[in-house]
Computed example of a mutant assay.
Amino acid sequence: MLEIRSLTKRFGGNVAVNAVSTTIERGKVNAIIGPNGAGKTTFFNLISGVHPASEGSIVFEGQDITRLRTDQVARLGVARTFQATTLFDAATVLDNLIVGHRLRTRSGLWDVLLGTKRLKEEERTCREKARQALDFVGLAHIENRLAGDISQEERKRTAFALALATEPKLLLLDEPAGGVNPEETVGLADLIRKMVAHGLTVCLIEHKMDMIMSLADRILVLSYGEKIAEGTPAEVRANPAVIDAYLGSEHAAA
Rank of each mutant, 00 (worst) to 15 (best):
M1V: 01
E3G: 11
I4H: 08
L7W: 05
T8K: 06
K9Y: 09
N14R: 14
N18S: 11
N18G: 08
N18L: 06
V20P: 06
T23K: 15
T23L: 13
A31S: 09
A31I: 03
I32M: 09
I33D: 08
N36F: 02
G37S: 04
K40W: 00
T41R: 09
S48I: 06
S48Y: 08
H51M: 09
I58G: 01
V59R: 10
E61I: 09
G62A: 00
Q63Y: 14
R67M: 10
R69V: 11
V73E: 12
V73S: 08
A74V: 09
L76G: 12
V78E: 09
R80W: 03
R80S: 02
Q83I: 01
A84F: 14
A84L: 15
T86R: 15
F88M: 13
D89F: 09
A90E: 15
D95K: 12
N96D: 00
V99D: 05
H101G: 02
L103C: 00
R104T: 01
T105S: 03
L109G: 06
W110S: 13
L114T: 02
G115L: 01
K117R: 15
K117C: 01
L119R: 06
K120M: 04
E121M: 10
E122L: 04
R124K: 13
R124L: 10
C126K: 08
E128K: 13
E128I: 11
R131A: 14
A133I: 04
A133K: 06
A140S: 15
H141Y: 14
L146G: 11
A147D: 05
S151Q: 04
Q152W: 14
E154D: 14
K156V: 06
R157W: 02
A161D: 10
A161K: 05
L172T: 04
L172W: 01
L173C: 01
L173Y: 00
P176S: 04
A177Y: 03
E183I: 13
E184D: 11
L188T: 05
A189G: 02
L191R: 01
L200I: 05
E206T: 02
M209Y: 04
A216G: 00
L222R: 07
Y224T: 14
G225W: 00
I228T: 12
A229M: 06
A229P: 12
E230N: 04
T232Q: 11
P233C: 05
E235T: 03
E235H: 02
V236N: 07
N239A: 03
A241M: 12
V242Q: 01
A253M: 13
